[in-house]
Design a protein around this nucleic acid. Structure first.
Ligand SMILES: [Mn+2]
Ligand SMILES: [Mn+2]
Ligand SMILES: [Zn+2]
Ligand SMILES: [Zn+2]
Lengths: 133, 133
DNA sequence: GGGTTACTTGAGAAGTGTTCTCGATCACGT
DNA sequence: ACGTGATCGAGAACACTTCTCAAGTAACCC
């Protein structure tokens, strides 16, 4: 049985307050900035739990860090992520789903899972980069 | 100018001898097993160089480890990977390429890159798993 | 070939993200 | 309230990767 603690609520709240993908450490810093004394290990545990329960999506940044996000739907979908500010657009593509399943089956693979993410610079960050260049 | 050392050749050779994706540490172990005294840092450096030159493909395992592979083509493609034995099938899918480009453009994202990998259990590993179950 | 020089190597230290340990704390059913 | 076991948090431990720097050596020049 899972207990309700202010720590778990704080993590969920911080996730909800962020619209992009964030790392455990970034979330911990954000919480500390608001005065919360929550421990880093607890943030990691809470995020892992949320991901397992399906209440949060997680992915690895190109640099290998685990990022989390409270998504609007718990249906399977993918993401278009700004590598500068973390802004995220949820995308779904049945064609890609079918393709992934088919390519695995055609090669005799079972228990197939896929990683499909698109990283780029969002419009705002693109404009900012152009201005400072 | 980049020098030719037996270390670099050894890494390239070990990569070529492997048909699946392997980690730097696994490659280092394999080399040591053959009696090579090559250093771990050197393996990391050689693999990074190969990846930059386009002579090796790299991706992150679901566990966050960087894996490398000498692919048969240096054209853009993706992979179907056995998460048990590392066996890899190279796949290309123009439809996915187009989709990735379009979804980024439609949302105002620039400099889009995509991560598309399929992980599963190859036929052999599937059979082995069934037999031991 | 011998000398010069800058690139490369490797052992270990350091860095980074994440998980583990374990005594203290606290949620929750009774 | 109480008891009990889940949860917390500080720091240690871990796994992977990169850095440091003294020693080694490939490549260029003569
Ligand atoms: Mn999908
Ligand atoms: Mn592609
Ligand atoms: Zn952005
Ligand atoms: Zn396999």
């Amino acid at each position: 049985m899972k207990r309700n603690t202010w720590q778990r609520e704080a993590v969920r709240g911080a996730l909800d307050a962020n619209d992009g993908f964030v790392s455990a450490q970034a979330l911990h810093s954000a919480l500390h900035a608001t005065g919360s004394p929550i421990g880093l290990a607890t943030v990691y545990r809470a995020l892992a739990d949320l991901a397992v329960k399906g209440d949060a999506d997680s992915l690895q940044s190109p640099e290998g860090e685990s990022l989390y996000r409270a998504c609007s739907t718990n249906l399977h979908h993918h993401h278009l992520i700004c590598r500068n500010c973390g802004l995220t657009v949820e995308i779904e593509a049945d064609a890609v789903e079918r393709w992934a399943k088919d390519v695995a089956a055609q090669n005799g693979f079972t228990q197939a899972a896929h990683v499909v993410d698109v990283f780029g610079l969002c419009a705002a960050c693109t404009a900012k980069a152009a201005a400072s260049a």
